[in-house]
Amino acid sequence: MPDTHHAFEHVKAVYLPIAIVVFTLVVGAVLILLVRGAGRDRPGRRSNALRLELANAAVLACVAAFLVVITFRTETPLDRTVAHPALRVRVIAAQWSWRFEYPGGVAVAAVSTWHPRPALVPTGVEIEFAGVSRDVIHGFWVPQLSFMRQLLPGHVSRFDLIFHAPGTYMGTCSVFCGEQHTEMHFALQAVPAVQFERWLASGGSSA
């Protein structure tokens, strides 16, 4: 299920090498053409090659199809939300703050800061986030998870995330949302489930 960062790395491992190979091939071809064309005194006359064009188009279509298959396969689990997540967290974004609300009334807020107090999450389980904005569009982005979702006013966006490794995951508002967009940060701290339960039971005070 949705190890978003792993999914990102998996697709990147296909796309990036192909992009580099294509770039290198074209640069190489251009260099060769320039060097060989520099001293030529009579230009060639040929101005079309239908078979080569078709072959080129066919190769391109195959590459595109291959990329699309990789993308679709990886995307399907990313877009799914499980019916029974281990935890449900409400995310409320506003100009310019984040608020994470847990079952039992525990809440963590980060108001316009670069040093937010972390909101805790348990490691290794599926967590459903239900995000909404109170005013304009904001973007919930956790670069370490390679995941972003826009939060809209008046509409709840649901997505599942898993935090495999313990540690602090910095988050930031990715969608420009006005004057203090720059300061709109949050932090999620992934801890073992036991520690998370203790934290939740203590009302979010013992970290």
Binding site: F8, H10, Y15, A19, E75, L78, M148
Partner: peptide, 23 residues
């Protein structure tokens, strides 16, 4: 332009776009 085009192909893949969009 090729650099722009190839990075465009990367951004056309949602699993990659979920990270890189708006960055």
């Amino acid at each position: 332009f090729l650099v722009g085009g190839l990075t465009g192909v990367i951004l056309a893949s949602p699993p990659l776009n979920y990270d890189l969009n708006m960055s």
